[in-house]
Amino acid sequence: MVRYEYGGDEFVFVELAEEMSLEVNFQAMAITRKLREKQLPGILDICPSNASYMIRVDPDQLHPDVLIKELKDLEHSVSIDDFEISARIVDVPILFEDPWTHEALMRFRDRHQDPNSTDLEYAARINGFASKEELIQAITDYPYLVSMVGFVPGLPWCYQMVPREQQIEVPKYVRPRTYTPERAFGFGGAFAVIYPVQGAGGYQLFGIAAAPIYDKEQRLPDFADSMTFPRQGDIFRYRSVTKEEFESIREQVEAGTFRYLTTEITFTPHDVIENPKQFSENVLGRLYV
């Protein structure tokens, strides 16, 4: 059941489904894109999220009930069958079990479900993997859809493009940490994230991204147009790197020369949903030619 809800007098929140799926994320993407094209006066923000979306309005220009009527029409007229997504495929290098997130997760052991193992060991065990190496393999084997951006500027929620039974799912910390290092790579619910800046957080910590996803000075070429790198609809491939490659990327970042390896792709939701394995191979094939 789709829920249309007021968020005070300035927001309308639409929950398309209670549970996460690629289908529902594509649907939110398709509806919000159509709404954007309509350029209705009085709309201040259009925020697609994982299984929902949210609109900020100026109610003096657009009554929330008028907007809701418009959104209900879109719900019925927009279909993901004829929806095409043009997106970037991005290679995102991650150093798993790095010293920085290790220090952070050890410091907050008393807030974790399992104080006696690391976040990675715990996540491997509850997801039925024989070892943490197998979990890392599963995380890096298939690409992710950036299904939502937010929390703080540029944080990408990434949902792996695999069938439900293959999804990795972990709880959030029992009580959130007060510290998470910048660029930490975490997992919570069915989502992988990178923390753009240092701060609080409750996701399981697995590693650290070598390159930034937020650059307020806009020093790196990938940030010429925006302080934030991830965009909803992007496809991220998390790749496990060695300490040596990590150091080399850090040097490029420091020198201001680092660029993400990216390529463009146009696809339909069905390409992904019908055959995720083939889609994934196609994606990786395009990225690492």
């Binding site: 968020g7 999220s49 299984a51 959030k172």
Partner: peptide, 21 residues
């Protein structure tokens, strides 16, 4: 709990927070 939400009963699949929510 619905898929993707996390285990706490106060958890939902991550969504947008209105100002003042």
């Amino acid at each position: 709990q619905p898929f993707g939400a996390g285990s706490n009963p106060s958890n939902v699949v991550d969504l947008g927070y209105p100002i003042g929510s």
